[in-house]
Simulated assay, not measured.
Amino acid sequence: MDIKTGLAWPCALEDPTDRRSGKPRQSGLTMVIDKGLGPSAFEDLLLTAGEYIDLLKFGFGTSPLYPLDLLRSKIALAKRHRVATFPGGTLLEAAYRLEVVAPYLDMAADLGFDGVEVSDGTIELSRRRRDELITEATQRGLRVFTEYGKKQAGSRIVTDDLRRTVELDLARGAELVTVEARESGIDVGLFDENGRCREEELQLLRRSLPEPDCLLWEAPQKEQQVSLLRILGTRVNLGNISPGDVLSLETLRRGLRSDTFALHPLVSDYMI
């Protein structure tokens, strides 16, 4: 509602699904990937769509490339909009390879990042070392978001391996396990070489995996988002969303776009 005029859209039009909750959300999370937004664009993003962003990842290893004052200001601005921030998992993988994990985690905490991503998309991590990294981060007060899957083209999801990873990561202290799809969403994990969702595989995963609210699916393309919403429902956590696609995704979640109009609870002829 506009406080000055008292004008407001009909409540039913704001969320026809009547399923979206406000912040802080426990499910239906949206994670945005920031690949280098400048301060004005970053502020514009948060002013326009901050209410619909739960997590923001400073992609890849971009964090050390910012002037520190600018990086701190972006993190602080995100906090004011109740958006949790963390560096991309590739940065931790580089820190691991270069044997500077402790200083990396100290710096992330000092800068004000809410969390870090623990992944092995490019490197190899033993289960023991993965556990240690999760523990080292949580001991510094950082939230931990882990990632499952490899970045190489053609890599696939192994259901039993994903289930075990989820169980062990959560038991160690991770909050979310992200299913790898890269920023392209092509020929990795759940998506084929054309970026299409392997929907039969997703249906099998839906029936097999525990703790669905603790999974976050990287899904940078609209049709991928539609498939995940249609099969897993509006509570699905989605990641690697482009800054320009936040409002578009929110319309998909709320049944305010033709692709997910069937999610509208009153459209009984099209209920999924």
Rank of each mutant, 00 (worst) to 15 (best):
M1S: 13
L7S: 09
A8N: 09
W9P: 03
C11P: 10
E14H: 06
T17E: 10
P24V: 08
T30H: 11
M31E: 15
I33D: 03
K35N: 15
K35H: 12
G38S: 06
P39V: 11
E43W: 05
D44H: 14
L46W: 01
T48I: 10
G50D: 12
E51G: 06
L56K: 04
G61T: 13
D69I: 11
R72H: 15
A76E: 13
A78I: 09
A84W: 14
G88I: 07
G88F: 14
G89I: 00
A95F: 07
A95C: 12
Y96L: 04
L98I: 03
V100W: 09
V100T: 15
D106W: 08
M107W: 12
L111F: 07
F113V: 09
F113Q: 07
D114C: 05
V118M: 06
S119Y: 00
D120L: 00
S126H: 01
R129P: 01
E132P: 04
I134Q: 05
T135E: 12
E136F: 07
Q139W: 09
G141P: 08
R143Q: 14
G154L: 15
G154N: 05
G154Y: 09
R156Y: 03
T159R: 13
L162R: 07
V166S: 04
L170R: 06
R172D: 05
G173I: 01
A174S: 11
E175R: 11
V177H: 01
T178E: 12
T178V: 15
V179G: 01
A181S: 13
S184L: 02
S184R: 09
G189F: 00
G189S: 13
F191Q: 03
C197I: 10
E199L: 13
S208D: 10
E211D: 11
C214I: 01
L215F: 09
L216G: 02
L216C: 06
A219H: 00
P220H: 03
Q221A: 13
Q221S: 07
L229Q: 00
L229D: 02
R230W: 06
L232A: 07
L232M: 09
T234Q: 10
R235G: 13
V236H: 03
L238N: 00
P243L: 08
D245Y: 07
S248F: 09
S248M: 05
L249N: 02
L256N: 11
D259Q: 14
T260Q: 03
H264E: 11
V267H: 13
M271R: 14
